[in-house]
Every structure is written in structure tokens, then in C-alpha cells.
Design a protein around this nucleic acid. Structure first.
Lengths: 188, 188, 188, 188
DNA sequence: CCTTAATCGAGACGGTACGTCCTGTCTTGTT
DNA sequence: AACAAGACAGGACGTACCGTCTCGATTAAGG
């Protein structure tokens, strides 16, 4: 037997409240208590779904209609990469900033959440770049052995900027980073 | 000035307790309350010295006998860079890991601490690389216009790994990153 | 009437669980939740039968095979009374202690349950003594006008001892109380 | 060293709130949370003073200006006893009813509080009668060996009536009980 | 030498959030 | 209908820190 099913409307309300709170007031301002209050849901209903603030955070993040960014395939690594990097930086510079900082805050507080975040947020995003790099490698545009290092060169600086609130994720910066990746991909 | 002077022994005890707690129990396990208790000092004595957990964190970090790493000057960018990157990665992989993660956690929670951390920890460390790069530029080893991007290529991936608890800050990784910086420094 | 009839096995299981819990863990340890869990019955099934913890308590109490104590008729008030008082004290001193204390706790918390308890537990027990006293009155052993006062002299001290956990309900005490009742029944 | 002293005004406010709540809403309506809220004091401040609802209850009870009832000494047991019994019944019939029922409820829920209550409330009240009985014994008005039984004959029925919400603590009842005590004190 | 003023410990204080438990109701699908 | 399962709002529980605030007791430097 399976009992009364969870009310999807509540799922929704909880995620919405979490998103709002984290956006408006940052990581510190999003409490389980606050989420319950704002969503008009009992604390139990929140804890039934999420054992911790972190889980809720990730699920809320997931549920945001991650509009799929079409991975480009132009035949040139640079022109494939640049718009992707720009899009990533833009996203984290504006709409997702508070959110990503919350993820960073939680991740830095313990490996449990870190693992979770890697699985559900970090890796999927990294994967977007793997196809591009693989194709470029076939074309001979990439000779360095390790794809992951190249991806680290993109996301590393991005999270670094997010973490310390550098106001650096501009289009020019995206270009600089892209060029660095290109250089590293095919070292002299 | 008059009145009873602050007891330096207490300064020390507080920093020590903070370090111990953050090392043993991570960011979450270091509370002002706990620091006071462990150091055998009153809460007031802590707050008199540090307005916030963050300030204490940074000061404790500062006070760790930052044994000055002698910045090398070998005449070649690669051989200057590599030991520095290795040392940085090593430090954050072992002794300073919990501590740096605490800094990350706090920084991600608000711009106030982020600014503070940049000033007292992030920038000084970046500066270590500036001299190296400047000398290399004079020798013609660096043609890319922006030093900061190069430094981001080092520290970005490092903090990224710290943040999400990647176990990646090995010597090989230091070499990969160094090579990427070299390639980016003098793009084809 | 239509629909599925109630399962008597569940009636039984519920009462049993209630008795066990109240005996093992006292009033505090008997929750509707706990009863449902222990009896392997849904909470709804419990609430369908009993609107409140109190009702369940009383019904469970009732259902305990109240082995009927044969009311004596020896021709003398004292020898009728004494075994009855002893039996009552004994019962509440041992097997029924936790249970009666639970009834007391619930009764003290509101007049609703108090009324219920009086009806289903208190009065029936008082009635046991009425016949004895009536017969004694006919024999001229009782001259005081009010039977109820005499019964209060028995049960009052008993519940008082139960309430404040006096360890006083011994056989000697039963004798003392009986003698007091006798004296009060035919005052000088 | 002894730190900041507790604010007596808060002591007072807490007790007052507890009294009000228990009077207005009964035992069930008095929660630690509610007391804190009504008294405008933090929950901590309440828990710092009282480890449990019971302790607070007793202290609040104690603090009520128990106007000392002058123990009479008229030379006759009956005329000493009657006003005392009347006063006791009256008190518990009116002003103290909710309060005493709360004490009963808590006492019935566990021996810890029961012991506490006996010590601070039950025994002191019993002691009021000891002097009277002792004097009467000297005068030869009391021949029964045990004072405690006589006192049980008074307080037993009283708490019994309180517990099950009998509306019986009238002046006539006080007289009946007094006469019963007299009879029991000097049995034929 | 004797104020004067900041320090010290201890710990109270109002808050806020934590995560758990129970109450009594309700909503599923199953029997 | 009753049933198991379990979601639900609400409310209380007792605990932990936060940062501020009294206390009375030191502890130096400056008058």
C-alpha cells in the first residue's frame, strides 16, 4: 500500500519559496523554517521531502526550467566554445548568482552536500563541454591529453569569481578564458 | 590610552581554539561560543577582538606561521611557476584544507566577508605570482596582455577543487595547470 | 448497515497495545500514534473507534478481565468491608497502578474525560459498596445519613495515594481506613 | 565569579504568565512556549529557571501570596478543625481549582513531579493539621494511634473531588468530613 | 598612591532556527 | 464501509548559537 500521495502543489510551493528566499536574502536568509512559513506548508512537509537545506537547494535549482542551451557545432572549437562560456558566465553573473553562491556556501560546509552538488549540478554542466571538445579533438584542434583540465580552466575561474564576489564575469573575460583554453588545448 | 591592556595570551588562545575547531570539525563546528569555551575565554573577550566569525577566521589564518615560501627566480617561467603552483596546491590539499574551505563557506555567504578575504588572503597570494610573470614578460615569455587571467587560471581551478571537494590537487595536476598557464601566456 | 464490518481482532489489538504502553511507559508514553504503531493498525482505525486518548484508556481499562470480586455478605459491616477495601487497595497498588494513574492524569486535565471516567469507572466501583452499607444500615450498624461520605472515606485516600505516589496502600492501611469508616458510620 | 544576575522582574513575569495561563486555560493550555510568549521572555530564560513545566507550576503556586491562615486553637478539636477544613475546601473549590488540578495532572504523570509536589505543597499543608491534632491528643480527644490517617481522611476526599471534578466541596461536606475525622479519632 | 578606565570571567538576555514528536484530519487505493 | 499507508497543518518540545548586556573582580597607566 502506498498511502496518500504527496501533493505536487506543495512540492512546487516549497521549491518556489526556497528560490525566492535564497534570491532575496541569500544563503543565510533561507531557512527551513522560513521556507515552510512562506510556502504555507508545515515544517514536517518540508522535512518529509528534504532531509537538509542542501537537498532542498539542489532540487529547487534543478526545477528551475534550465532552458536547454543548444550546444553549438560550428566546425571550429573557438566558435563552439565562446558562446557557451559566455552563456555560462552570464547566467552566473545575473539570474543565478545568489543561487550559485548558496550552492557554493553549502558545498564548502561539508563533503556530503559537495558530492550531491557535483552529481546533480556540476558534472552535468561539465558534460556540456565534453562533446565540443571531443569533436574538436577529432578535427585535430585538441592535442592535450586531458579534457577535464580544459573544463577546469573554464569553470574554475568562474566559481572562483562567484565565491569571492569578483565582478569579472564579463564577455571580455569569457573571451580571455576561451582563448586560454584554446592555447592549452594545443600547446606549442 | 588608559585602562587595562588586552592580554596577548588570550589573543593567542582564541586563535588557537579557532584553528583547532575549524580543523577538527570544519566550518560548521567552529562557533564563537565554541571558541570561547575551548580557549577558556569569555565570549565578550572574543567579540571585543572580532566582530564576526569571519574576522576571527581570517586573523587565525593570518597568524598561522605562514612560513614564507621563497619566490623562485630561475630565469624560466616554467621552472619559476611549477614549484609555486605545487606548493599552493599542496598546502590546500593538506594542512590548510579545512581552513580554506571555511573561508570559502563564509565568503559565499555574503560580500562583506568576501571583500575582507580578498584583501587579506586572496590578493596577497595572487601578488606572489605577479613578480614572476612580470620578469617572464620582460624576457618575452609572456605576450598575453592580462596577468590576472593567468593567475585566475591557477587559483580558479584550485578553489574550484576545494569548494567541491575534488581530490585533484596532485603534483601532476599542478603540472597540467602550469602548462596551461604557459600556453595561455604566449598564445600561438 | 452496509460496508465492511469492523474487525474485532483490531479492537482487541488496539486495547492490548494501549494497555501495554500505559503499563510500560506510563501515561506520557501512551500516544495514539504509539498505540497504532504497536498494534499494527492504522491511526485512522484507532480514531474511528475512540475520539480521544481518554476513551481508549477507559475502554482498555474496562476490557481488562475485571474478574468480578464477589461482594461479601457476612452479617457484619467490618468483615464485609475489610476484604473489599483490601482488594481495592491491592489492585491499585500493583497491577492497575500505572493504569489508574493514567486515568487520574487524564481526568485532571479536563472535565470531559472526568465525567466519562466517573460514569464508567468511578461510580461502578462505588456502587459495590452501596449494597454492603445498605445491609449494615438495616442491621443498625450505620446511623450516619450519607452513604457517599463513607465511600469517599475509602476511595478518597486511595486516589490521593495514587495521585502523589504514596506507598501507603498496605493491608494495615486498609484496616485503618476500614475502622475509620466504621467509626464515621456510627458516630458517638 | 557569578555573572550577570537573573532579573527578578522576569522571574515575576514568568510566574505571572504561568498562573494566568493555567487559570484561564487549564493544565493543557499552559505550555513553556506559551509562558515565554505571554511573559515576553525568551524560551531560554524560562528553561534557565525551570527544567520542566512541573517545576514552574510549583514555583508559581508557591509564589502566590499564600495568605497565612491562622491555625485556630479553641480548646476543642471540632471547633479547631472545622474552619480549617472549610477553608481548605473553599480554596480548592474556587481560586485554586484550576491550579490544583494542574498539580494533580502533572503528579499523575510521573513520580518525579509527584515527589516534588509532596515536598513543596502537600506536606506543608498536612503539617497545618498536625498541631491541632497533637493538642487534641493531649486533651484526650484523640486516641487513634496514627495522625496521618486522620489527615488522609481530610485531604483524600478533597483531592478525589478535585480530580474527578465532583462539585462536592461545600460547607456541609466539610462538616461531614470533619465529623468523620472526629469519629475516627476516638473510635468507640 | 590612588583614581580611572578598560579588561576579565561568568552568565543572563531576546532572538531565530533547528529537527523531532504528537494531534486529529485528510486522501489514496485495496479488500 | 473498513482498512493500511501516509500526507497534512498546527503546535510544542528542548537545544544551540547569535550578538548584546550586566555584574563584580582585576590590572595597569596617569595624576
Amino acid at each position: 500500500m502506498q498511502g496518500r500521495p504527496r501533493d505536487p502543489a506543495r512540492d512546487e510551493a516549497i521549491r518556489k519559496a526556497a528560490l525566492e528566499l535564497v534570491t532575496e536574502r541569500g544563503y543565510r536568509g533561507m531557512s527551513m523554517e522560513g521556507v515552510a512559513a512562506r510556502s504555507g506548508v508545515s515544517k514536517q512537509a518540508v522535512y518529509r521531502r528534504y532531509a537538509s537545506k542542501g537537498e532542498l537547494l539542489l532540487d529547487a535549482l534543478d526545477s528551475v526550467g534550465r532552458e536547454v542551451f543548444p550546444v553549438p557545432d560550428t566546425g571550429s572549437l573557438r566558435s563552439d566554445l565562446l558562446p557557451m562560456v559566455r552563456a555560462a558566465f552570464d547566467l552566473h553573473r545575473y539570474s543565478d548568482k545568489a543561487f550559485s553562491q548558496a550552492v557554493a556556501a553549502e558545498a564548502a560546509q561539508g563533503p556530503d552536500f559537495a558530492r550531491l552538488a557535483v552529481e546533480s549540478v556540476i558534472n552535468p554542466r561539465r558534460d556540456l563541454f565534453r562533446g565540443i571538445i571531443a569533436r574538436a579533438r577529432e578535427r585535430g584542434e585538441v592535442t592535450c591529453p586531458d579534457d577535464d583540465v580544459l573544463i577546469d580552466l573554464i569553470y574554475g575561474p568562474m566559481w572562483y569569481a562567484l565565491l569571492f564576489d569578483f565582478d569579472r564575469l564579463t564577455d571580455e573575460y569569457a573571451e580571455s578564458i576561451t582563448d586560454a583554453v584554446l592555447a592549452a588545448a594545443r600547446p606549442a
